[in-house]
Design a protein around this nucleic acid. Structure first.
Lengths: 296, 296
DNA sequence: AGCATGCTTCGCATTCATGCGAATCGTAAT
DNA sequence: ATTACGATTCGCATGAATGCGAAGCATGCT
């Protein structure tokens, strides 16, 4: 009755709650998803989802299926990693996920690596939220974080701080109190609203002092160019590209690390090994040469 | 890399060991199986099966996949039963498995049931080996056995014995020794070679006394018509259709039962409930009316 | 009320995987 | 050797599922 790919269908709809994103997850056209769901519901003799204010809400029957489908999908993902972990080829896709802020740093290194291995389809996935590596959405992550998830392994590339920056006419350092009193801050919203940096802002800079919020750190740096204050990672704020000036010393409690990470299952995959070695070395050097870096 | 239906592909080949049967299990053309396997091996970058004296032997990589695929298939089968168990419809396929010997008994009852529920696609699967009900190859089994598997539930329809029969000129009872001395026995081979009845023959009737072996009990009954001796279930041997005569009293140690069985998960499925109730009642009556039956 | 946005359905053209049968190959048996 | 049988590969035609875009619906917003 239920085949293997029916599970994928139900799971995609349940996970996204809407048909269009489910179609994207399945790499199919929305119309196809509608038709497949209709056919499946007809075969099972009952509805699987009901439309409740714009979302596809699973019925009892669907919930039962989704529960199993999740467990099965996890096993399949793990199997896929095990298989990929044995892959000795340097061909095919390799997905590296990183943040917008590290893009500038990573891009040239990735490009050099790509030139070295032309049969590799290197894909850079820039997103604020960490791609779900248990679901094999990426093989490698380059992330600023204090504590990487224990499910991943890798190495620290270097440390960095957060400091307050401003561009345009502003220059020189001042006390935090003075800076905060000055209206004209950039806040953080969206997916980066839950980061330690955003929480620090919540504590120290009142809402009233903010002129705008951005959902990308890079946006905060760009916004700072017009004179506003922004809390930025030093590797970003010190980038000459933006022409910003540090208005404060580093905030000690926000000190963090940049990590190069992968899933343990993928450790011995040729692609992953090659990239980790190459990018690890190059990024470490780049971060050491970076004047903003102040590790011993 | 590996999708859900790749699992089904690899599993089917591993289970059957040959491509043609695997294709049948997948309900596809052999050429399709070859092509799909080739495509998958290319994607994974390694061979999955090697041809060793006519069988497809899994490589290390394939073994890893097969292990997981089996576990996943079990979960999928269980889920399918759970879903089928909720099905309140009296439509679609209902597969009943039984032995060749019970065919004559079951067929008219199944036909009556089918007439009652014309939207049901009743399928009778006659085979000596019990269909694997954990793999959902059948919903209902009607089987002669002393001890049904504990994984199944159901009810006893009645008891029966085995006795020695002969047709044609032969008639009247004689001592076992006399019967055995008479050359001209029918042996049991193939899938029914491991039944208690076959083992009894092995002990009591020497190979030299056998003129033929059959792989269906029904074949033994038919063969007996030409004067040979055959050990048959009483409900079969006493059937006037064959015109056989009992040559011995029942063999006590071969006394057995006829069971009507299903998987616990399917207990509440409308189709299963309906059939179990209908066929249970009808078969019980048929077996009670059967003159060969000698229960209190 | 009117507009706009996103969801859903439908008809039609296309395409990719499949089925089919023939040809080829390998293996085992006589 | 010869034959026969099954496994495997190939080319071609078919068709079922898909993609696409338009049309038809809801729903919320101004």
């Amino acid at each position: 009755m239920l085949t293997h790919d029916d599970l994928a269908l139900v799971l995609a709809i349940a996970r996204t709650g809407r048909m269009k994103p489910a179609a994207e997850a399945l790499q199919a056209h929305p119309a196809t998803v509608y038709r497949r769901l209709e056919a499946l519901e007809h075969r099972l003799g009952g509805k699987l989802f009901e439309r409740i204010d714009g979302r596809q809400a699973p019925t009892g029957l669907a919930e039962e299926i989704v529960g199993e489908a999740k467990a099965i999908a996890e096993r399949l993902d793990a199997l896929n990693r095990a298989v990929a972990g044995r892959d000795a080829r340097l061909t095919g896709p390799l997905i590296v996920t990183t943040t917008d802020t590290l893009q500038a740093l990573v891009m040239p290194i990735a490009a050099a690596f790509g030139r070295l291995h032309p049969r590799l389809e290197l894909r850079l996935d820039v997103s604020s939220a960490m791609a779900d590596m248990r679901r094999n959405e990426a093989e490698i992550a380059i992330r600023p974080t204090r504590t990487p998830p224990e499910t991943l392994i890798g190495s620290r590339l270097g440390g960095f701080d957060y400091a307050i920056y401003a561009g345009g006419a502003a220059a020189g350092q001042a006390s935090l109190a003075t800076l905060v009193a000055a209206n004209g801050w950039i806040g953080l919203s969206g997916e980066i609203a839950q980061t330690p940096a955003a929480r620090w802002l919540d504590v120290h800079v009142p809402q009233a002092a903010r002129i705008a919020s951005v959902n990308l750190m890079l946006g905060a740096a760009l916004a700072a160019r017009s004179g506003a204050y922004a809390l930025l990672p030093t590797y970003l704020g010190d980038d000459p590209l933006f022409g910003l000036a540090r208005m404060s010393p580093p905030v000690p409690e926000l000190r963090s690390q940049i990590w190069l990470l992968t899933h343990p299952d993928l450790r011995y995959a040729a692609k992953v090994r090659a990239f980790m070695a190459f990018a690890g070395k190059a990024l470490r050097r780049a971060l050491r040469e970076d004047p903003s870096r102040d590790e011993p």
